[in-house]
């Protein structure tokens, strides 16, 4: 396995195993990410890409191993970390408008029992402007196109003003113009020293978009700079079918309700 570790990593994932209903879906994931790069997480359907970033965000319990961001546990650094869920994970028929969604990105700064102040509203409008959605601020979210909804999610992340961003398929089901807007914005963020980690599907754009890659298929196939990792051989390993023995052992663990660690 090609696995390039970095000095002073911004994100460290150490021997991470994650299970759904006792069945491991990620096995022994181990990698580090340097500061200020654009990272693509690449792999087939069911490879555990979304599971990986959800686990890093602490949304899914860890079976074994640990995650450190800025050398701390996630709960200590949440103010500096932003997460963009998949667009389909929410109900866009919810009775609210674009600006209110973006304001959610300010909630941790606003705090409990308080309403957004002018500074928060200004920050939200500024974020909408960056994704070219100013004129849609008051638009009911169900009336936005898929691409516009994705931009609203991105604006919410920008309003968080974090240092590291995790994005679950931000390019899924968006139009070409939106993809262009989003990628330019992400590249600008990386230039400013932010780290952006993106679950991605389209192999054609990988070389153009990402400095650093994680190739994933239930286990980590490779991690490192795109130029070292994006090779035919490693892609073949990533996409050449699941490791069937791994799946079978996973099924056994589930059937016998075996603990993953003794």
């Amino acid at each position: 396995m090609i696995q390039q570790h970095t000095e002073a990593p911004i994100l460290e994932v150490h021997d991470l195993t994650v299970s759904y209903n006792k069945k491991p879906v990620l096995w022994g994931i181990d990698f580090t990410i340097p500061k200020g790069v654009m990272v693509g997480i690449i792999g087939p359907n069911g490879a555990g890409k979304s599971t990986l970033i959800k686990t890093i965000m602490g949304l899914i319990p860890i079976s074994s191993g640990f995650v450190k961001i800025f050398e701390e546990a996630i709960d200590k650094v949440r103010l500096r970390v932003s997460y963009v869920p998949q667009r389909e994970s929410v109900d866009w028929d919810f009775p609210t408008n674009a600006i209110d969604i973006v304001l959610m990105g300010r909630y941790h700064k606003i705090g409990l029992f308080k309403s957004p102040r002018k500074a928060d509203i200004d920050a939200a409008m500024e974020a909408l402007e960056q994704v070219k959605m100013t004129e849609f601020a008051q638009r009911q979210i169900s009336q936005l196109s898929g691409g516009q909804q994705q931009r609203v999610f991105l604006a919410r992340a920008i309003a968080q003003d974090a240092d590291i961003y995790f994005m679950d398929e931000p390019f899924a089901g968006v139009d070409a113009a939106t993809e262009q807007t989003i990628i330019e914005l992400l590249q600008k963020m990386v230039q400013k020293g932010k780290t952006v980690i993106v679950v991605h599907h389209d192999l054609q754009s990988v070389k153009k978009y990402f400095d650093w890659l994680l190739l994933l298929n239930m286990h980590l196939v490779a991690s490192g700079p795109t130029k070292n990792v994006f090779t035919d051989e490693l892609l073949q390993k990533t996409y050449g079918g699941k490791l069937s023995l791994l799946s079978k052992v996973g099924d056994l663990l589930k059937q016998h309700e075996f603990p993953h660690r003794e």
Partner: peptide, 10 residues
């Protein structure tokens, strides 16, 4: 609206 995001901001 968005439970995962709610959890993600702590």
């Amino acid at each position: 609206f968005d439970p995962s995001f709610a959890k993600s901001i702590g």
